[in-house]
Amino acid sequence: MDWQPHVTVATLVENEGKFLFVEEIKHGRRVINQPAGHLEEGESLVDAALRETLEETQWRVEILGLIGVGLYTAPANGVTYHRSSFFARPIAFCPEQKLDTDIEQAIWLTPDELRARSSELRSPLVLECLERYLRGQRYPLSLIY
Rank of each mutant, 00 (worst) to 15 (best):
M1R: 10
D2L: 07
W3I: 09
W3T: 09
Q4K: 10
P5T: 14
P5G: 13
P5S: 12
H6Y: 11
V7Y: 08
T8D: 12
A10E: 13
T11A: 13
L12H: 03
L12F: 01
V13L: 03
E14N: 08
E16F: 06
E16L: 06
G17F: 01
K18T: 12
K18R: 14
F19D: 09
F19E: 10
F19S: 08
L20C: 02
V22I: 14
E23R: 02
E24Q: 14
E24P: 00
E24N: 08
I25K: 03
H27I: 05
H27F: 09
I32Q: 07
Q34E: 12
Q34T: 11
P35M: 06
A36G: 11
G37M: 01
G37Q: 07
H38N: 09
L39M: 12
L39C: 05
L39E: 11
E40Q: 13
E40T: 08
E41V: 10
E43L: 01
S44N: 07
V46Q: 03
D47R: 11
A48D: 05
L50D: 10
L50G: 08
L50A: 06
R51G: 01
E52D: 07
E56Y: 00
E56T: 01
T57D: 00
T57V: 05
T57K: 01
T57P: 00
Q58R: 15
R60F: 00
R60H: 10
V61C: 06
V61Y: 04
G65K: 14
G65H: 14
L66D: 05
G68T: 08
G70W: 07
Y72T: 07
A74C: 11
A76H: 13
A76N: 11
V79P: 05
T80G: 02
T80Y: 03
T80A: 03
Y81K: 04
H82V: 07
S85N: 11
F86K: 00
F86A: 05
F87G: 04
F87E: 08
F93R: 15
C94W: 10
C94V: 15
C94E: 15
E96I: 03
E96Y: 04
E96M: 02
E96T: 11
E96F: 01
Q97A: 02
T101W: 12
T101D: 15
I103K: 00
E104R: 04
Q105E: 15
Q105A: 15
A106I: 05
L109Q: 06
T110P: 07
T110I: 09
T110V: 08
P111D: 14
D112M: 04
D112K: 08
E113F: 00
E113V: 02
L114D: 12
L114Q: 11
A116N: 15
R117C: 01
S118P: 02
R122D: 09
R122C: 03
P124S: 02
V126H: 02
V126I: 14
V126A: 03
E128T: 10
C129F: 02
L130R: 06
E131C: 02
E131L: 13
R132N: 13
R132F: 04
R132L: 12
Y133S: 13
G136M: 09
R138I: 07
R138S: 04
Y139Q: 09
Y139K: 10
S142I: 02
I144C: 02
Y145E: 14
